[in-house]
Amino acid sequence: MMDMPSFLFYIMTFVILAAASSVVLLRNPIHSALALAITMITLGFMYFGLEAYFIAGVQLIVYAGAVMVMFVMVLMLFDLKKEVGQVTKGTIGALMKVLCGMALSGIITWAIRYSSISTELKKPLQNPAEQMAGVKILAVQLFTKYVFAFELLGALLLIIAVGVVAVARSRGGTHARD
């Protein structure tokens, strides 16, 4: 009989893969966005299972909250009536792409199967200094060892904000009539 963590893992795996397939396969972009939200939320639960509590919270707030709202708002702005030409044309080309995806998946799975690191790490290593301290350890590392990268991220976000406004505002912003 399976124990509870494994059972939850397989349930969440099923939900994640099904929702991710729905994102790719559903014709209506709004339905794709909802399936993506399910994927993000279930991944957040999986991070809880991996004891990354802060990351799980950030996943729920930033991805399932902010990014998804942004996607849905832009979709509603567009008012896409027709669903024509949304998938690549040509059966041969599509078949080749699916084959490429499956080949990549097979190659990576083969690499995982025969790598030494994954056979060594059957059970989580318990590092006494860094377990159960979660957010505090994360914050200390972020503001000491990685502080330069952290500040660079701030600069990146500022540049992105200016750039996005510049791109979206050209020719009268989102309310252009012509």
Partner: peptide, 13 residues
């Protein structure tokens, strides 16, 4: 998950 995302990028327009 990664390969599903890649297929999405390749297949959808």
């Amino acid at each position: 998950l990664f390969c599903l995302g890649m297929l999405g990028v390749l297949l959808r327009r």
